[in-house]
Computed example of a mutant assay.
Amino acid sequence: MNFWEFLVWMFWIYIVISCIWIYITILIDLFRDHTMGGWGKALWVIFLVFLPLLGALIYLIARGRSMSERRVAEAQQAQQATNDYIRTVAGGGKSPTAEIESAKALLDAGTITQADFDAIKTKALQG
């Protein structure tokens, strides 16, 4: 095997791996799509199995825009879930009333002074 044959083999291996990646991405998108029914998904899978290249090209042309919109929506939903989790862990999700109530309980227990309570109350009311 000479150098050029090696390059041709590497090219075809790259093409095969790229095609497999595209098919897997299409199948994942197909099964995550909530707007399409079961029969539509089954027909797309049959089309992709029996005519893979043509099926993938038609899928990307016909549903490529909605494919990217679903991916963006999933990313935004994941980001929102992460932000909500961080807020709850950090304590940023407490309302001013809840902060004042917890500070009042600490004041009544003698853990903080009246000046500390007033500072917490002022901070909670300012937002």
Score class of each variant (00 low, 15 high):
118 D>M: 03
25 T>S: 14
93 G>N: 15
25 T>W: 08
15 I>N: 07
44 W>K: 00
83 N>Q: 08
70 R>V: 01
18 S>D: 11
123 K>I: 05
77 Q>T: 12
53 L>A: 14
10 M>V: 15
82 T>W: 12
23 Y>F: 13
44 W>N: 02
57 L>A: 14
11 F>H: 05
3 F>A: 09
64 G>T: 06
82 T>A: 13
17 I>C: 09
101 E>Q: 13
36 M>H: 01
11 F>E: 04
37 G>P: 06
29 D>S: 15
6 F>H: 07
3 F>G: 01
76 Q>P: 00
106 L>H: 08
75 A>D: 02
114 Q>M: 09
29 D>T: 09
24 I>T: 07
6 F>S: 10
34 H>Y: 06
65 R>N: 05
64 G>R: 02
55 G>Q: 07
107 L>S: 03
37 G>R: 01
69 E>P: 00
17 I>K: 14
106 L>A: 13
59 Y>C: 03
68 S>L: 12
13 I>D: 01
79 Q>P: 00
32 R>G: 06
1 M>P: 07
127 G>I: 02
107 L>G: 03
58 I>M: 10
67 M>K: 04
4 W>Y: 12
33 D>Y: 01
44 W>A: 15
42 A>C: 06
68 S>W: 11
11 F>Y: 12
49 V>E: 07
11 F>A: 05
126 Q>N: 15
90 A>I: 00
83 N>T: 05
43 L>S: 14
55 G>V: 05
51 L>K: 11
113 T>A: 02
96 P>V: 08
